Amino acid sequence: MKNNISKKKKNKEHKKKKESSNMKEEKVYKLLRYEELPEYMKENEFILAHYRAEWPLKHAARSLFSWHNETLNVWTHLLGFLLFLGLTLVHLRDIPQVSHLLDPFSWYIPSNTIENSSYNPGKLFNAETKASLASSSSSSSSSSSSSSGSQSTRWPFFIFLSGSMFCLLSSSACHLFSCHSHGLNLLLIRVDYAGIAVMIVASFFPPIYYIFQCDTHWQLLYLSSITALGLLAVVNLLSPHLSTPKFRSYRALLFSAMAFSGIIPAVHAVVVNWSEPRRNITLAYELAMALFYVTGTVFYVTRVPERWNPGAFDLAGHSHQIFHLFVIAGALAHYAAALVFLEWRDSIGCDHQGKSSSIITATMIS
């Protein structure tokens, strides 16, 4: 009898534990409203519902395929990462040392795609740019064919692609897993901000390296300056205090200052290459990039449109999603410009450009 009673007690206790654990699971995994969030997650008071909070990592990972207010934030930059990963694989085929490693995967990359994207951004974007590139390169190719026997180095171009992928992937990871705990939330947010700084710095490498390839002192000065500024920004952004919502505007100002620090080398580059026909093409792409980034930052800071109608844009259409789309658009515009810089340097070499640019830079210094 005693054994039976003790067994019944154990069964009852076991059932209670199961019920309590089920209640806990129900409580942890349901989507919350803004007022139910822990304080550290209360960042945007205009998004009222569909939040995840204190979710285990495996459930946070599974939420990649469920609907909540971070779903589109995750997927916009995850798809952007996959896009830039594909572009990187395409361009890696230009490098003999690694192209043979990609041969098993060449079935999904048509050969004409590789040629077009590697050397002719006009085909990748539009026919008008193609015609412009063809006409502008004809005048310089005859005079510089003897000096352009080898391709320019590709590492600055891959630094840009790598920086873009790091930024996009860290952003996706942050939006997916920051609901796990306070500690992981802080860490991922700081990595996300550092990723933006890395992307900005990496974006400077192709234009500065290829424009000033024949003037190494200017090349070194500009690249070392932006790298130092980027490191300073990363150190700043890794501070837990500066990662809080209170410093949202400060972070936007810091990123904008980094981006606008490129005005000096940009003006210098325009002066050095004043007679280069392809200058207008690259300027158009770079201005488009700047416009995309600035517009995205305005949405990020002002929290439009959700501040106009709180709750209406909880799942789709809020400012951070729009900001993500503008970041991808800006990165693609800069990618197009980088292709033009690369093709131009391959075609013109250093002899002709080096003489003209050294004369102009000497004049500027004097």
Rank of each mutant, 00 (worst) to 15 (best):
K130W: 15
I208L: 08
C179P: 02
G122R: 02
A134C: 11
H180F: 15
I189R: 07
S132Q: 09
N185I: 04
H180Q: 11
S148A: 01
S138D: 12
F212M: 07
E115D: 15
T129A: 09
F166V: 07
P121T: 10
S141P: 09
P110L: 05
N116S: 15
L124F: 15
A134G: 06
F166G: 05
A197P: 05
I200Y: 06
I196P: 04
S111W: 06
N126R: 06
L169K: 07
T153Q: 03
G163K: 00
Y119R: 07
E115M: 10
R154M: 01
A197Y: 08
T113C: 15
F125S: 06
A134S: 10
I189A: 06
S152Y: 09
Q213N: 13
F157R: 01
Y209Q: 03
L169F: 13
S148G: 01
N185P: 15
S144W: 07
S172C: 04
F160T: 00
H182W: 12
Y209D: 02
Q151Y: 15
S152P: 14
S142I: 09
R154F: 01
S203T: 13
S118G: 11
Y210E: 00
F160A: 03
V201I: 05
P121S: 07
E128R: 12
S203I: 04
E115H: 15
S203N: 09
S138K: 10
G183E: 10
Y209E: 00
D215E: 13
L184G: 09
S164V: 08
N112W: 14
S171M: 00
H175K: 01
S162W: 07
I114K: 01
E115A: 13
I159A: 01
N126K: 10
L184V: 05
S143T: 14
L186A: 05
L168R: 06
F177K: 01
Y193W: 14
K123V: 08
K123W: 14
N185Q: 14
C167L: 08
H180W: 14
L124E: 15
C174S: 03
L187N: 11
S111R: 13
H175G: 02
A131Y: 15
N116P: 08
T113D: 09
S135H: 09
S162L: 07
T153I: 02
A127Q: 13
L133T: 04
S137T: 12
S135G: 07
Q213E: 09
S141D: 10
L124V: 14
G122E: 12
C179N: 14
I211W: 02
S136A: 08
I159F: 01
L169R: 02
H175V: 08
E115S: 10
S152R: 09
D215C: 11
S147L: 02
F158N: 00
P110I: 12
N120Q: 12
I189G: 12
P207I: 00
F160S: 00
R190E: 08
N185H: 12
I211V: 15
C214Q: 05
A197R: 11
S148H: 03
S117L: 10
N116T: 08
S140I: 14
F205Y: 11
I200L: 00
F177R: 03
M199P: 10
Q213W: 15
S172N: 02
F204N: 06
F204K: 02
Q151C: 10
S137G: 11
S118H: 07
